[in-house]
Nucleic acid binder design. Sequence first.
DNA 1: ATGAAAGCGCTAACAT
DNA 2: ATGTTAGCGCTTTCAT
Lengths: 338, 338
Amino acid sequence: MADIANAANVSVATVSHVINGTRPVKESTRLRVEAALDAAGYRRDRLARAMRRSTTETVGVVVSDPTQPVFGQMIQGVAKEARAAGYAMMLASSADDGQQELEAIKTFKEHRVDGIILAEVSHDLAGFDEMLRPDSIPLVLLDRLASRRLDQVGAETVGPMKRIVDHLIGNGYDDIAIVAGDLSVPTLQERFEGYRQALDAADIPLRSDRVVDDVRTEREVRAAMRPILQGNERPRALVTSSTNITAGVLGALHDLDMRTPRDVALVSFDELPYAEHFAPRITSVVQPAVQMGEHAMRLLLRRLRNPDAQARTIRLKPRFVHRQSCGCPAGAPSPFGD
Amino acid sequence: MADIANAANVSVATVSHVINGTRPVKESTRLRVEAALDAAGYRRDRLARAMRRSTTETVGVVVSDPTQPVFGQMIQGVAKEARAAGYAMMLASSADDGQQELEAIKTFKEHRVDGIILAEVSHDLAGFDEMLRPDSIPLVLLDRLASRRLDQVGAETVGPMKRIVDHLIGNGYDDIAIVAGDLSVPTLQERFEGYRQALDAADIPLRSDRVVDDVRTEREVRAAMRPILQGNERPRALVTSSTNITAGVLGALHDLDMRTPRDVALVSFDELPYAEHFAPRITSVVQPAVQMGEHAMRLLLRRLRNPDAQARTIRLKPRFVHRQSCGCPAGAPSPFGD
DNA sequence: ATGAAAGCGCTAACAT
DNA sequence: ATGTTAGCGCTTTCAT
């Protein structure tokens, strides 16, 4: 920058002001400086700027597993809005491990990111409180939400889950099991809650042998489902609470040489990629993951501009995609009324 | 840091050296400094350090579409190795647009990343040469490779593609079409080359009406395939060059109410996620995307440590997953000899 | 309208 | 073994 100043016969201050438009500069000198800038192929140094301004225009994003399409979509959404606002994005993967998540946050802080988006907080919140202290960095939660007042964006869960169970009940199913996954995860807990409410509203008793919980991996789901699906006592319909769970159920069906909806109906919360093209064609609730990412970034920008804004929780509506696996007639009304 | 120095009755230099272990410090003072560090909850400022050291310990990664599982996997691999080496990762998405890609690179440079990984360079290389000037930043290409000498890691393409076509030929197919996509993309060109070589070796003439090229999107593939698949003149087998292409073909099959392998056999280069669980069960060549990401990061680290190292090109072997869509008997020998 | 200079938080060369 | 200090590249206050 000193070189530029020299070449244009001005001070570094003027060069800086030309670059940033931070104070009026006489047309002629501005042109001279711009020419020098061009000639030298000048590129600003964001580090040095950040040192002075103490804002890096960088956000940190931590996701639990970038391999899963839904996270890819969230990342995509964040990236898009970040770019639009001139922000760079740092990414870390936590492998759904609270320890790694905290470490990622610390690293981000060392790099002085302006804010952090946690796309799927580990639900084991040890050390989490510390991150939330007001003196701490702006934070937005994505997907897995906390109960306290925070900036966060997720998808509606209870209502949609209730409605797809309603949908099954309305189409004559009365023995519906839920493959709920790990109920200590808030999101999954909420989905279970929707299931419970639907049964409740229809006066169907909740049977504990129709709730498959405490299964965390696709493999565990697959193993757990086999005994449940064999024999005549099996449920007539299944709702699954996440992509991995659905995959596990499909594995079990395969193992038993069973078909959906012929042998058991199936509705999945979350969609498997390219679901359109494959059999079974699974009726699904689809989360608007890209938009969720966009909203998260916008929420963060808002907070950066106005640190004292009220914390906001955004819940986006998922889409209902009616396919064949629920075994309902094609003309059956959408449970989402759309 | 000045506060720490005060509290421990030493100079900032000593504090710095305790933190970095850059010079011997008397046990007792070290302990005193460490205590002060702890008490103050000191966190180093990587920006300031980067200013001095002129290395940020940050790498920039640009992918064309984080939404696609294969990129998620590469990102995962890079993230893992980066973390292990104490590097942070910046991510940008280029939407397969050369312009955006260049902009992402520029932004990364402004942030002074130590190196850049380009996970799928846009093949329109305008302005690309500029990025490659020796005075420029260390660069590693991922997936789409360049012909010149550069650090880059990809998967083998020609050989594996040749072998899966061999596999089809060996099992009695002699009319095999390739859905090759956009042949100006080097990777896709290579896959086509493998197809060509296989036909050549078997003395099967290459027919231009058996090469579907110049299709870029899933939708275009779907539309282009319909006329080809109708009627008795249709090919007996299809090889597809990428995930999106495979998806397009599946769409066309669906439109025509056709099945694979019953109506036409299919082998896909690249695998659709959760392919295990769905019908049709597509015989596929699977790229080790996570490892590719890991290797890319390691190559970059090597270059950073030794700027004068010879450029290295790494080609990883894909896996062959034999399923039903190729219509070959289950016991047919693996074309990859494994 | 422009310039001089301090300083952001560190590291490292040079002293002692 | 430890301390002093210049300076990384910029922004911005205070002068002129």
